[in-house]
């Protein structure tokens, strides 16, 4: 029998969950409704000078592509080295711990570092290249941590079985460990990309400007990015270009939701595939 108190508690708990659901619905509705009524094909394909958002969209893709190309090999190699090869001593633990801490460092710090190190110290200036490098630094800890988790999930039995057959270590990793961990590794990379796609603070002063003459033709030129463009539209000139702001927000939100959905689906399938 449920007492009044039990019912009150249940109501309160359910109510909290409902508020969070409501927050999600409110934000997606706000962006969704505003965005859908603002966005159209012409806007996406038209240059920024004629009221479109073409350059920031392509600029964002440039930024993403370069970051993925840098962060994926570096991140995977680091994770594989730490999880499979590095001696399991104190140094390893400290490095892993430091990486975990870096995953919690605010993105604005990466922006500061990127500006001081890449733009200034290395003289790369405000450029696409500085942006790639800065964002690579930002995603590396996330990718490394996620990948390490995925590698740890591979049962030890598999490795022992392969080594007992005489497989050299790297072959065991290549043939057995990596294929088994692929879904987990993919998930960690996708989540890294999702963070890059929505990042503003780290690119504020490393790679993006409000207006450029068209798309960058070399990695040493600055680039227009959706998040930064939205930021300037809102902060520098609030009230104007509301349509473009909503359209950009919708694209960003859609992209991030899609990436996370993809990661979620991979995780679900992965759970079902092998029974070990």
């Amino acid at each position: 029998m449920k007492t009044v108190k039990e019912k009150t508690v249940l109501f309160l708990l359910g109510f909290s969950a409902a508020i969070l659901l409501l927050a999600f619905v409110a934000i997606t509705l706000f962006i969704g409704v505003g965005g859908l009524s603002a966005i159209n094909f012409r806007m996406i394909t038209t240059s920024i000078r004629k009221g479109g958002i073409f350059e920031p969209i392509i600029g964002t893709l440039y930024l993403l592509a370069g970051t993925i190309a840098m962060a994926t090999p570096l991140g995977l190699a680091t994770a594989i080295y730490l999880a499979e090869y590095a001696p399991k001593g104190k140094i390893n633990r400290i490095i892993v711990q430091a990486l975990n801490n870096l995953a919690g460092v605010p993105s604005i710090i990466f922006g500061l570092f990127g500006y001081a190190f890449f733009c200034r110290f290395l003289g790369l200036g405000i450029s696409l290249l500085s942006g790639w490098l800065t964002l690579t630094c930002m995603t590396l800890p996330i990718v490394v941590r996620g990948s390490q988790e995925a590698l740890k999930m591979v049962p030890k039995d598999f490795r022992v079985a392969a080594e007992a057959l005489g497989a050299p270590k790297w072959k065991t990793i290549k043939d057995i460990v990596l294929p088994t961990a692929t879904p987990g590794l993919a998930t960690s990379i996708i989540l890294g990309i999702s963070r890059v796609a929505g990042e503003t603070a780290a690119i504020l002063f490393t790679c993006s400007v409000f207006l450029t003459k068209g798309l960058p033709t070399s990695p040493l030129q600055p680039v227009m990015v959706l998040t930064y463009h939205l930021y300037t539209l809102l902060v520098a000139s609030p009230g104007t270009s509301t349509d473009r702001a909503f359209a950009i927000a919708l694209i960003l939100l859609g992209l991030v939701i899609l990436l996370n959905l993809l990661a979620y689906l991979i995780r679900m399938r992965y759970r079902k595939r092998w029974k070990w």
């Binding site: 049962p155 039995d157 022992v160 007992a164 057995i176 294929p179 092998w274 070990w276």
Partner: peptide, 12 residues
């Protein structure tokens, strides 16, 4: 020197 383990450990 081949080996068979306590718990069967087929590869995935």
């Amino acid at each position: 020197v081949g080996m068979v383990f306590q718990k069967p450990n087929p590869l995935p």
